[in-house]
Amino acid sequence: MFERFHQESRQAVSLAQENARRLRHDHCGTEHLLLGLLDQRSCLVSRVLGRHGLDYERAYQAVVRLTPGRRAPALDAEALESIGIDLSAIRERVEAAFGPGSLDRDPVTTRNGRRSGRHIPFSPGAKKALELSLRETLALKQKGIRDGHLLLGILREGRGLASRVIADAGIDAGSLRGEITVELSSGGP
């Protein structure tokens, strides 16, 4: 199925993984796919959702809010120092051996490809949404899976956190589907 993916869709999936890592989540769900789509500011999905006031930053904050406790705990330098452990000294040595950000899995580092981190498994909902994006593409009698089709798949799946984020932003899923479909059919950039 991935061979049908346009470059922007492959990029969205890879950015979804990166966003899951950045959030220190242990799976890649529809919410991460949505962030992967919005992380490409000039693409169709970003443009359409932007018209409704939902951009990457806002979606990211919404995901953070909706996933309390799923975030892996941060390193507590202050508490370590209270028992005589200098976190900055440890970080310095670890980074000397494994590269910048290795102790914190700095997203900037992963973007460069070095220590890109391991693959984060897709949630059943995200898998379903990816499958449905193919079905949406075929239903529109189109060939390649573009980023808009991914969003249609996410909306069709409907039960994931991505749909929640979109609904919480006051966007009606039905009319959003319509707008995306129009954009996809107009053969935009």
Binding site: P73, A74, L75, D76, A77, A79, L80, E81, S82, I83, G84, I85, L87, I90, V94, L103
Partner: peptide, 25 residues
């Protein structure tokens, strides 16, 4: 003064921080 503290909140927070660090390493 934190280091010598017998306040459980301080001590337990340090233990937790240490565990997270060990997991990461």
């Amino acid at each position: 003064s934190d280091a010598g503290s017998r306040d459980p909140a301080v001590g337990l927070r340090a233990v937790r921080a240490l565990r997270i660090l060990v997991d990461r390493l």
